[in-house]
Write a protein that binds this DNA or RNA. Structure first.
Lengths: 255, 255
DNA sequence: ACGTCGATCTCGAAC
DNA sequence: GTTCGAGGTCGACGT
């Protein structure tokens, strides 16, 4: 930690830390310009700039979840201290975009060599839901038999699950982890339309999601599609139980 | 800045800083659990936790643009130091979600009273494009006359611009700031379909964007819609010139 | 490299 | 409150 360094010292500290790919946090008063996919200006104010080990940059204001300005990883730095300020330029190629940071006050600079190999696990993603529903299709409907989830509909994007119901109808399932909105219905509609052209059978459309929005429900009904509520909890439990037997070589089929 | 505080001291520092709504950055070794809209676990590793003045939380690893864990603004904190660790719990209601952070090493704690009133301006957003195109519709097509951009299509969402071309045809323009993809075509298609039912005229569909993706271009052609390239630069210049006269009370009409 | 889609998306606006 | 769409979205995965 360096408290109130001169701009010259700050320049040295930053260059050395960048060289070694250390984590840098600079707190101070600054203004920021961005030019690239868009353009932005940020007037003087107290913020902190984070330069990470992968050469990404984040400018954070004292409040708000999102960085006000940033640069993705892999950018090239130019640190230019002068008598009055510290100027940091971070340039990214492809697409070409430039972030310019001007500090006229530096409160402190924190340089750390952080080692983080810790594993991160997240449950339950939409693909987890898909796994669960393929493992136990009765979560959607009794007697439902998934068909190869390969591409069947070539042109209309890819639906989540294709299946056959107990009456031999073709079924397309659109999975949403989040509250299903109109967009999900439109997606499903496109899949069903394309499928009807290719398959000479009745084609049912089903949205499987924890919740569906009211408007989407109406739209769904107007298209004669169906909604099946699938709690995330159930998917989580199913996946948990599915894994354990495998590890123990129990091959008891889940039901 | 507090270097290597004891867990007890760290607890005091954090509580006081939270009380005063100061910015807090804690660097150390920690593990993190999240439970709410999803669930996640993060194993031990060196990270820094940011607690902002609006009671939001960000856990950042030494690399990567995005926080590995976070909590949106307005959450409630519980700081619990023990002999072996510092446990911070951040709970958000609506939706209920809980973030639990356990530090078994604290490298340092940075507490700052940052004042940031600086204005942030971003150009060119999609609504900027709309403004520009309404100011000078010839950017899309000569003789195009925008119609009230109020809701005309009640049920099919809202198109960006409604207009009449020099032949009296109804025109719907879908604006995209980013490369226009298939989704833009589908959106346009829905608007045009609805419009055709309500308007007893020829309805043209136009996508106005800096670039259009190849696949989207094909889809567009199959629907007999059109694409008009609109460089962001032109919109930016138009808005710049439009503004200046206003400030100076020149009322010379652009174009 | 481009295209597609999910996300604890976040954020804001409109209804 | 709900819904909807934009975002310098980012990131992952597929081609």
């Amino acid at each position: 930690v360096h408290e109130k360094p001169s701009f010259q010292d700050a320049g040295k500290i930053l260059r050395e830390a960048l060289e070694k790919h250390l984590l840098i946090i600079v707190t101070g008063n600054c203004r920021v310009n961005y030019e690239g996919r868009a353009s932005s200006t940020l007037d003087w104010g107290n913020r902190f700039a984070i330069i990470k080990t992968d050469a990404s940059v984040l400018i954070h204001r004292p409040s708000g979840y999102e960085p006000v300005n940033w640069q993705p990883s892999g950018c090239v730095f130019n640190v230019m201290p002068s008598e009055r300020e510290l100027y940091i330029r971070a340039v990214r190629l492809q697409p070409k975009e430039t972030l310019k940071i001007y500090f006229n006050l530096i409160f402190n600079i924190l340089v750390s060599n952080l080692i983080d190999e810790g594993q991160f696990d997240l449950y339950v993603s939409e693909s987890d839901m898909k796994k669960a529903l393929l493992t136990d299709p009765s979560l959607i409907e009794d007697g439902l038999k998934p068909i190869s989830s390969e591409k069947i509909l070539e042109d209309a994007g890819f639906a989540d699950i294709f299946a056959e119901d107990s009456n031999g109808n073709f079924v397309i399932v659109e999975i949403k982890r989040n509250p299903a909105g109109k967009e999900a219905v439109y997606q499903l509609e496109r899949y069903v339309k394309t499928a009807k052209k290719k398959v000479n059978r009745t084609v049912r459309g089903i949205i499987a999601a924890p919740v569906i929005q009211r408007e989407a429900q109406l739209l769904l009904a107007s298209r004669n599609f169906e909604y099946k509520r699938v709690p995330l909890r159930k998917c989580y439990q199913l996946l948990k139980f599915k894994k354990t037997p495998k590890l123990l070589e129990f091959n008891e089929k889940p039901r």
